[in-house]
C-alpha cells in the first residue's frame, strides 16, 4: 500500500466527525451550574437550620453524594450524563457515580474482589493523587514554615 500510517491518520481524522461542541459545552455548563446551584440551596437550608458554615458544606456534599448514588442505582445518572457530559462528571456527584457504578457492575464477581475492589477503579486514582498532592503540600508548608 502506498499510503503511510501518517497519511492514513490524517485521512482518518478527516473522515471522523468531531463532537458537536456547540451542544456539549453549553449542556455541561447548564447541568454543572444547576448541580452547584442546588448545592448552594442545600447549603443555605442547612445553615438556616443552625449548622456552622463548615458543617453545612460537609452535609451538602454528603447529600449530593447520596443523591447521585441513588440515581446511579436507578440507572438514571448515566441518562443525565449522556446529555450533560462534564456537567455531571466534574461535580462531586460524578465522583459518587464513579464509586457506585463499578461496585454495582462488578458485584457479579463477588462481594470482596468484585464489589469491594472494583469500587475504587475510577475513584481510587482521584483519592491517590489528591491525597499525595495534599501531603506534598503539607511537607512544603512545614519545611518553609508557611503555616
Amino acid at each position: 500500500m502506498n499510503i503511510t500510517p501518517n497519511e492514513y491518520n490524517e485521512m482518518a481524522k478527516k473522515a471522523s466527525p468531531g463532537t458537536k461542541s456547540y451542544k456539549t459545552i453549553p449542556a455541561a455548563f447548564l447541568v454543572g451550574g444547576l448541580i452547584c446551584t442546588l448545592g448552594q440551596l442545600l447549603n443555605n437550608v442547612y445553615m438556616d437550620a443552625g449548622m456552622s458554615k463548615d458543617t453545612a458544606s460537609t452535609v451538602t456534599s454528603i447529600t449530593l453524594i447520596f443523591a447521585a448514588a441513588l440515581l446511579t442505582g436507578l440507572n438514571l445518572y448515566n441518562k443525565i450524563a449522556k446529555f450533560a457530559g462534564a456537567g455531571t462528571l466534574v461535580p462531586i456527584t460524578g465522583f459518587s457515580n464513579g464509586v457506585v457504578s463499578p461496585a454495582l457492575e462488578f458485584k457479579s464477581e463477588g462481594y470482596v474482589l468484585g464489589l469491594g475492589a472494583k469500587l475504587f477503579v475510577i475513584a481510587g486514582p482521584v483519592i491517590v493523587y489528591g491525597i499525595t498532592a495534599s501531603a506534598v503540600y503539607g511537607v512544603i508548608l512545614y519545611l518553609f514554615k508557611l503555616y
Binding site: I25, A28, F29, L34, C36, T37, A84, A86
Partner: peptide, 9 residues
C-alpha cells in the same frame, strides 16, 4: 460551577 464544568467539557 457551570464554568468549571464547561472547562471539563
Amino acid at each position: 460551577g457551570g464554568l468549571l464544568c464547561a472547562i471539563g467539557q
